[in-house]
């Protein structure tokens, strides 16, 4: 399990982090480099989800009354979905971010 996780972490970090891990030299430079692409990507995904919700509410409020799930309307499904999505994206970020000074996992 642990090995699988480490393998994927390696793949993901090479894909989404433009730079090598933090060397602690030059705080500013590191910060900009390390501000990971993964974080930005996840941020954009959430922005789309949230933006979609706000825009539907603003311009097509009636869509919110559609019942996609067994008598529960879109307003609730989408609203709960946004909260769950925030949690899932945060978890993904946590799993694939690397800790700069190596330390014991939680």
């Amino acid at each position: 399990m642990r090995r699988v996780y480490e393998k994927y972490q390696k793949i993901w970090t090479t894909r989404f982090f433009s730079a090598k891990p933090d060397t602690q030299s030059g705080v500013i430079l590191t910060m900009e480099r390390q501000h990971s692409r993964l974080g930005l990507l996840l941020f954009l995904i959430y922005l789309l989800l949230y933006g979609g919700f706000v825009l539907i509410n603003t311009f097509r409020p009636d869509w919110m009354q559609v019942q996609p799930l067994n008598g529960v309307n879109l307003a609730i499904v989408y609203g709960f979905g946004l909260i769950l999505a925030a949690f899932l994206l945060a978890l993904i970020y946590g799993l694939f971010s690397h800790d700069e000074p190596p330390e014991e996992s939680p």
Partner: peptide
């Protein structure tokens, strides 16, 4: 709607602001 907005803000906090 406030609940949703308040929580969404945390995404900005986590992905943009927290580490720097």
């Amino acid at each position: 709607l406030y609940s949703i907005g308040y929580l969404a803000g945390w995404i900005v906090a986590l992905f943009v602001v927290a580490e720097p």
